[in-house]
Design a protein around this nucleic acid. Structure first.
Lengths: 252, 252
DNA sequence: CGAACTTCTGAGCACCTTCTGAAGCGGCAC
DNA sequence: GTGCCGCTTCAGAAGGTGCTCAGAAGTTCG
């Protein structure tokens, strides 16, 4: 029963689970407590079991207890560097997936080789949608996740489809080209179909956590999306005045 | 079921397996822990079962436990040299394949003698694509691997084909001449069709692990490839702004 | 030893993306 | 009907990304 409750995200969506149906286990390692808190919250929202640690030593202890399927790991830690932690983690659990967090201007330094093993990284500042999407991708490719949806890495709402790996979006079979932000916004909408999403919610999920701008950008990007997704067709993106936006399959 | 899950690489590609369908077993022997870690990760990503050792003694112990199909062996080890280890390994498992890792200026004549026996070598610094490709070739030639794909050492995407052994590439039947780096880049793309590959991923996989340069070279080599592969034809190499590159068969 | 090739760097350019501000539109309340 | 508020759209600035060219340095091969 407990397991059953944890099989569902707090948002009501079916959760991505381990093959045996229990929740995926994720360890968050970052020395910034605020950031760790935000990440932890977002991953719990996905229906996953999450623990946090603030340094390499704590990460190792936590990993031994939790035996996580994946680790979200800041490259810059107070006591050690990410590469050493990676080695230790692989010692604890050889098949663990790792998503590195790294500063934008530090991209070049020690990322070399990290993506080679199938692991991935995200540069700060990042959006929560991106972190979650990367993590889902990692877990799916590693065979650690059981796909509850039918067709894997493909999102489908009505005649609108999104292949996350190929980064391909089609409506009624027609290919649609999207900029990175447009793509992420649409992904968020498609992962929450028929649910009204407020501008604040969208801003929190799709834009980086340090974005100072206003909700106006959301309106702007919705209009961009409509031009590419809805133009000349029955609209799927709807405005709910005073509440937000919804993506719905066309009903007749 | 477990075996079945392991028959697939983490990237979703069908794995090269042992004749009985279980994962190939590879032992990595190198005294540089970072390098061993990267190699281990890359080989696991191929869907193989991997163990690592840091010296000759460790290698022997690990070999007795794992009974590997292949060994990736650094010629320079702290306690002994690779050739002595090789003799010991042959004592444990006479038919084991060996891929030597050697410094560029090392004694080439001794290596040459070894390769006559069917084994192979790669000079440091190497790219992971090269190590993986050599290993696949070794295992295939030794009859230790069952090819899950139909036609063995030949990659096909749309009307583009690559014979890895002959180093021959054709598009629509026409022969295309490529430089070594161009060839390896295209191989990586062809082994991951319809998947967006980031520049960092490409850099990690196709360029040597000690390459300090920037992602700019990837753009440059993509442009070289386009000139040879896509020129005057329907393009197969596509740029996904802000994400990376994809190789796709032409769709109409 | 020289020629051809391969690899990589740097600079310049064009285009794309993102975001701001301002004007326009439309529904809803009064 | 009128005015207000929320949403939409336009136009443009600023910065970023990717492509290409030219050339330097290193390598291979005859």
């Amino acid at each position: 029963m407990l397991v059953d409750a944890m099989n569902t995200t707090r948002s009501g969506r079916p959760a991505l689970t381990r093959p045996d149906g229990t929740p995926l286990r994720v360890l968050v390692v970052d020395d910034d407590p605020d950031l760790a808190e935000v990440l932890t919250g977002a991953l719990r929202y996905e229906g996953w079991e999450v623990r946090a640690a603030g340094d390499g030593a704590g990460a190792l202890t936590a990993a031994r207890e939790l035996m996580p399927d994946a680790v979200v790991l800041d490259v810059m830690l107070p006591d050690t560097d990410g590469f050493a932690v990676l080695r230790l983690l692989h010692g604890v659990k050889p098949d663990v997936c790792v998503l590195f967090l790294t500063a934008r201007d530090a991209v070049e330094d020690r990322i070399a080789g990290i993506t080679a093993g199938g692991d991935d990284y995200v540069t700060k500042p990042f959006s929560l949608e991106e972190v979650v999407a990367r993590l889902r991708g990692l877990l799916r490719r590693a065979g650690m996740a059981r796909q509850q949806e039918e067709d894997g890495p493909r999102l489908v709402v009505g005649d609108l489809t999104m292949d996350e790996e190929a980064r391909e979006v089609t409506r009624a079979g027609e290919l649609i080209e999207l900029s990175p932000t447009e793509f992420e916004l649409l992904r968020f909408l498609m992962r929450n179909p028929r649910r009204v999403l407020s501008k604040a919610q969208i801003l929190d999920r799709v834009w980086s956590y340090d974005f100072g701008g206003r909700a106006h950008v959301v309106e702007l990007y919705i209009s961009y999306l409509r031009k590419k997704v809805d133009v000349g067709r029955e609209p799927m993106i709807h405005t709910v005045r005073g509440a937000g936006y919804v993506l719905k399959p066309v009903t007749k």
